[in-house]
Nucleic acid binder design. Structure first.
Lengths: 119, 119
DNA sequence: TTTCAACCTGGAGCGCACTCCAGGTCAAGC
DNA sequence: GCTTGACCTGGAGTGCGCTCCAGGTTGAAA
């Protein structure tokens, strides 16, 4: 059980982002009697997944879709898997593009290295 | 010499984006007597660079800085090189993160593959 | 018991990179 | 000369993902 600040520290999301994720229905967090959020290890597991998906460029709407499927139960496992698979393929394409553009960038830098007065 | 639509087609940027890039001073394009833009091969070269920088996540403000330096003349070559070098290092970090999160994603998908009823 | 930092809410605001629009102009082809 | 589609401008609007704020509440420590 973690207080909001601790969950923020562990997940790397800001407090505001955690509240925002709850507001849009991406996450559902328990409360104390006084109305304060308490994050479980399970919640942190979800946050870790969201970080992975976010860092690989998945739109929030699609994360919501995934979370919704998970809430519907085990029978949606296949659909969730397919969603992740499609995303992984997009990430592969993204990695190829990034590598290609990185190579261009390096070529451009090498051009500067051949210039007089550049060092 | 290329008309705007041809420049858009070749660069992959939309007409509106080309106009926007000019408006913010990232690009400076020649005109016909009637006031219409004409793109040279040099302009397309710049657009290719902007695409590379954009695809690797450079903010537009930094591209503007680079373009500004280039306009100032050859004596800024060192600074331009350094700017690109710093960016390339950020891209390397970005590639490492993307690879790491991709691995997580693949691990998650493998977990689904071990589930009953998932295929 | 008091304090005070951490927490709560609803809603407004922001930064980025475009994207769209209205209303007008240009020029190539018939 | 007329038509028509590509082009022009300034400025407003959009979508995303937060981020900030005001004004109020909670609860652990002193």
């Amino acid at each position: 059980m973690y207080a909001p600040s601790e969950a923020a520290r562990r997940s790397g999301f800001s407090l505001d982002t955690l509240r925002y994720y709850e507001k849009i229905g991406l996450l559902s967090v328990g409360r104390t009697a006084g109305g304060r959020r308490i994050f479980t290890d399970d919640d942190l597991g979800w946050l870790e997944l969201f970080r992975c998906l976010r860092d690989t460029g998945m739109p929030i709407a699609e994360m919501c879709r995934y979370a919704e499927l998970a809430r519907e139960g085990a029978h949606t496992a296949g659909e969730r898997q397919a969603l992740l698979e499609r995303h992984a393929e997009r990430v592969e394409e993204q990695m190829r593009l990034l590598q290609r553009q990185y190579d261009h960038l390096r070529a451009k830098i090498r051009y500067y290295e051949g210039l007089p007065g550049s060092h």
